[in-house]
Design a protein around this nucleic acid. Structure first.
Lengths: 343, 343
DNA sequence: AGTTATATTGCATACGTATGCAATTTGACT
DNA sequence: AGTCAAATTGCATACGTATGCAATATAACT
């Protein structure tokens, strides 16, 4: 088991130069002659030397690690975002350290502590809220935080979301224009800003058109809870003829219950609209009409804010809302005059 | 911007003890009196001190970071595994550093280099192969590697897979017993051991029953490729009456094409069987008969091998195959006498 | 060639922690 | 109270790298 650790000192010896010289060769932008670079790189190559990122971070104060806190990956929106975030950060020489949490405060607090122990350069939280105390700790430690797909009032926290209120509003217009009479809502988790904003926008939209919800149940962003909600909403004879479900993940569960258990036709008997536009939404089995959260642009914004803070010492907190289009597909009756845009 | 870094020295000063004492209080198993522990913890708490994991790792040679290399998260099997892996490792005080790669060798090599730069304690690759040269480098660096859901001959690499050969074999028995006459296969990527093994087992099973494949196309584990394969296989009048698709992710695409484009009935006209049993497979929209890869047990095995190597210096390479049951659902005709086990 | 500005290099030190060793304290026992 | 073993503590150093500073080499002039 020849566990060989090659250090910059080994390389220096072999190349007949000082350790600092080696360090400089591997530090972009440092002052080295081409002859020196050549010598050192040759020696490094022969020994298989690579700089130790951890040792480096000890002295630079930069770990090139971004902590990602995420509650669950069952909803396809998050693995998709994770993949994109990781790719984008990787291109800038950063990598993602993953922390899974259940969404209760204790767990988040504990995990966030561990996160700071790793001297992460920045933190992204996806679908997770932070206590104010925690936000303070991150701020004190000089670690920028971006809430991805979640909003929070704390003035120290950057955030990137879609325009959830407006999205909900659009969906209300869409459903009302479609001539639906009994409109219900299976809401996103009331403990999340996204869930609350979508519901508020939806209600506002209905109200402005002189309508109101016939029923509203919190689906907790969970498949089973949403399915139960659907069973309750649609068992009676005076069932809704349209339902806006707080995200796609729940909407699939609702459609499953409607079609398989209650043998209702979608959209013949009930129109269903979701939120997110995860890949599965466009597959024919669901063909779900849904409001797209533009994950590409959300990821871009997240990464750019983070790098701005880390590398250029920015300190203006950004609260970004990104608009997304309604993807009109086959799960909801299409009003006259609304173009049927297909993906 | 008071970026305050509290070090063990600060704590030592405040508690009126030596830095070593502070270190020992935060090192499980070190020799400290209860009085000392109390003093130090009090001071640490007042200052908000937490040990710097990176500095610690510099001296212990342990980073408590596990590198995870993964090609894509679109197939639900992988986010699911990632979530479980992360949770399991987190319980042991490890965390996952994510590296996304495209599945060509150059990229893998480059990324693996970065991985080693972080002094990871171990590496898990999911759905990714490694060059032998790379395996050698990891071995030389003393970093254990576990291939998750992928096999490779290299004697230095641990691996955990399901019993793909046997799985393919079982599916052959199932389809033949179901009375299917024209059996086709849309295979997993031929560049992967899983794809090859499943196909080999499937062919062997057919052969032992005196049958053979009427057609076989490589679906590359990609949705679009699989869909194209389905279009090609099923356009003629003498189309197959059963198809085993190399994983669920592709099977969904195949069912979409069969039902929506070709208006064929599943399983009336065609039986479809997948592989993995991702959550979506059990949802009514697909209700896919599929061979379960027991991700729980695969994750357990992966974590236990890794910890055995890291913490107890194990060095016996393990190649583990875990058996999974065929989940009989509604997408394939059920032979007489096969119990219809439901999830 | 002589002067001065600039680029390159080495030396020494720092980052925050863990740990072997020797010094000290504690406790148990006669 | 005195002896001795065991537990606890502090001292000093090491981990692998980056960087300010002074020393040296090089280049660019007159």
């Amino acid at each position: 088991m020849g566990i060989e650790k090659v250090t910059s000192i080994d390389v220096a010896k072999r190349a007949g130069v000082s350790q600092s010289a080696v360090s400089r060769v591997f530090t972009p932008g440092a002052s080295v002659s081409s002859k020196m670079a050549e010598k050192v790189l040759k020696a490094a190559d022969e020994l298989g030397y690579r700089p130790n990122v951890l040792a480096r971070s000890l002295i630079t104060g930069r770990s090139r690690i971004i902590g990602l806190v995420v509650a669950y990956l069952e909803n396809q929106f998050y693995p998709d975002a994770l993949e994109k975030l990781s790719n984008a950060l990787q291109q800038h020489g950063y990598h993602i350290l993953v922390f899974m949490v259940s969404n209760d405060d204790d767990m988040v607090d504990q995990v966030m502590g561990e996160l700071l122990d790793y001297q992460v350069d920045g933190i992204i939280t996806a679908s997770v809220a932070m206590s104010n105390e925690l936000a303070a700790r991150c701020a004190a430690a000089g670690v920028p935080v971006v809430l991805f797909n979640r909003g929070q009032d704390d003035p120290r926290l950057n955030q990137v979301t879609s325009d959830n209120y407006n999205g909900g509003y659009q969906i209300a217009e869409f459903l009302v224009s479609g001539g639906h009479q009994r409109i219900a809502h299976i809401a996103g988790w009331a403990g999340s800003s996204t869930g609350r904003d979508r519901e508020a926008g939806f209600r506002a939209g209905l109200k402005d058109l002189g309508r109101e919800l016939v029923a509203c149940i919190d689906g907790m962003y969970r498949r089973e809870t949403a399915a139960d909600a659907a069973r309750e909403l649609f068992r009676g004879p005076d069932r809704p003829d349209a339902v806006f479900v707080g995200n796609d993940h729940m909407a699939f569960a609702v459609m499953d219950v409607l079609r398989s258990e209650l043998t209702l036709d979608v959209p013949g008997d009930v129109s269903v609209v979701g939120y997110d536009d995860v890949p599965l939404a466009s597959w024919p089995a669901y063909d779900l009409t849904t409001l797209r959260q533009p994950s590409n642009r959300m990821v871009e914004a997240t990464v750019s804010i983070l790098l701005e803070w880390i590398e250029h010492g920015a300190n203006d907190v950004q609260k970004i809302k990104i608009d997304g289009p309604l993807m009109i597909r086959g799960s909801a009756r299409v009003p006259q005059g609304w173009s049927h845009e297909r993906l």
